[in-house]
């Protein structure tokens, strides 16, 4: 199996009834602008890390919203925080804060689950 992030997720339907929203809710509370993503993909297109490795920041947002947390930590580590995504985002989402919250949240999540 591919070692990278979302490819770890097994091909199956998204089960909203098994949704683990802890991480998502915490991020939404601390960065409400995260709610208004319209999935245009501008962030991924401009992404600096994306020129060097397979990295899709928009899809990470989407996975988080579907409760698919497996592999996220590894994915998010690719981000260089350069901020280009925020400049192209048509909705003005504070993406860097989302990433920092996610990084922190994933550490906490891991600690809680150990």
């Amino acid at each position: 199996m591919n070692a990278f992030g979302f490819k770890l997720i097994e091909p199956r339907s998204i089960d909203f009834d098994q949704f683990d929203g802890r991480l998502l809710n915490e991020i939404l509370e601390k960065e409400p602008s995260f709610k208004i993503c319209l999935s245009c993909g501008g962030c991924t297109a401009t992404c600096n890390a994306g020129t060097l490795i397979d990295f899709n920041i928009r899809k990470m947002n989407l996975l988080l919203r579907r409760g698919e947390i497996t592999g996220l930590a590894r994915e998010i580590d690719k981000c260089m925080l350069c901020g280009k995504c925020m400049l192209v985002c048509p909705r003005g989402i504070n993406i860097r804060n989302v990433i920092m919250l996610l990084k922190k949240g994933l550490v906490q999540y891991r600690n809680e689950n150990i």
Binding site: C40, G41, G42, A45, T46, N56, R58, V88
Partner: peptide, 26 residues
Amino acid sequence: GRLSEAAENADGTLQIKAEDTLSGRP
């Protein structure tokens, strides 16, 4: 997918970047 930026090549053609959001790839 929304265009993020355009850059010019030496021959005047343009290099454009977007994400093909439906296939999920830049």
